[in-house]
Design a protein around this nucleic acid. Structure first.
Lengths: 210, 210
DNA sequence: TTTTGAGTTAAACGTATGTTTCAAACAGTT
DNA sequence: AACTGTTTGAAACATACGTTTAACTCAAAA
């Protein structure tokens, strides 16, 4: 049986470590050690650490992107002229995320962490990368949300959208820690699905406040 | 007129730079250069970079902490046995934040960024620091929220609280960038007060969803 | 068989980092 | 004025980092 590809092993290791310790705090040496790969392999295959970070992100983003697009496409074919509710929209996105991260729970965290960094890091490279890769999907979702909330002023809708984004990004990226707290304080275990089940109604209620 | 204290100059410079570039990405040399202070001063006065980060945070947290406590105290004295609504609670917190960050808008961002890091960074030093410094205020606010949302299950309330926290942390820590986007896309300027004015109803509606 | 070229390896490079050192400057006290 | 404890200064230290180099491996092509 053949070993897994070097590139894949690097991406896997980087994904885990980035999610666990962040980007600046994770060195190429740690990554290549865990991947059981020579240090130079990262620069050989990806060019630089920045490019690796983007590649880790792209490996997640690509399938997610396509899945949301295609599921929206088929829905619009089957139910044309239907206005989706906020809950529906969120469910589409959540379902795509779940199916992309299936069996690898740290990928969600890393995606969300990256999202947060992209917004926080003023002139960072992630921001531009994310914006160019993301733009058309972002616009599409945003126009669905607009149809679902016709009474909202554009500026307020923009902000509420980012309130939602923030809620999701923060919660999902620190899911591990929060679940540990729940287990300690309430003697209960929460699955990711349950947390998302809590999250969506919160977001939906928030965006249609008043 | 005497120069500003070295310690204060370091804290001011660190605060700005941390808010702008993050913690790992800001070096002591950059900080001391902006503060116009010798490199060794940080280690002399604070001991380490970690300690400096905590000091930056503590300078904000202390006054904020006291302000929330005292304003809650006086309110409870004047209106005993009154159950505060979620909006009221949020307004208390928001007012304290506004008054502490007044005239220095980057302090809010750095506080929120730190908050985010504290939750994301698994075994980070920030988490413990924040928890010990924060614990009693956190409990107090949490018990007020509990009274304001008696129908909520404890676990779901916990999650919704962190959904709120996430929304606020994400939005306020990337406020600068988001406002720039608003200005570009909508030709409108948003003050921080306006954003908070958008945020609080969103949060309140979210936490009492269904 | 020889050649080729992508992939891997160990080592080194240059740089930036946090921290330490120790002498000089300073401020307050006696 | 001399002493004392605190603060500053320039330099060095040790280390960790991302990246580059050049020799080597090895399978497929010629």
């Amino acid at each position: 049986m053949a070993q897994v590809d070097t590139v894949t092993r690097i991406l896997d290791a980087a994904e885990e470590l980035f999610a666990e310790h962040g980007f600046a705090e994770t060195s190429l040496r740690t990554i290549t050690a865990r991947a059981d790969v020579n240090l130079a392999a990262v620069n050989y295959h990806f060019g630089s650490k920045k490019a690796l970070i983007q590649a880790v992100f792209a490996r997640f983003l690509g399938p997610f992107y396509k899945l949301v697009e295609s599921s929206l496409d088929t829905h619009e074919q089957q139910h044309p002229d239907t206005i989706l509710s906020i809950e529906d929209i969120l469910r589409f996105v959540a379902r795509a995320m779940a199916s992309v991260t299936q069996g690898d729970r740290s990928r969600l965290a890393i995606f969300m962490r990256l999202l947060g960094l992209a917004y926080n890091q003023g002139q960072g490279h992630l921001r531009k990368f994310l914006q160019t890769e993301y733009r058309s999907l972002f616009r599409r979702v945003m126009s669905l949300i607009t149809k679902a909330t016709p009474d909202l002023q554009p500026v307020e809708r923009f902000w509420r959208f980012h309130f939602m984004l923030g809620s999701a990004a923060f919660t999902l990226s620190s899911m591990e820690n929060l679940r540990a707290i729940v287990e300690h304080d309430f003697d209960t275990k929460c699955t990711e699905e349950e947390v998302v089940g809590y999250l969506l109604p919160f977001l939906a209620a928030g965006i249609r406040a008043k």
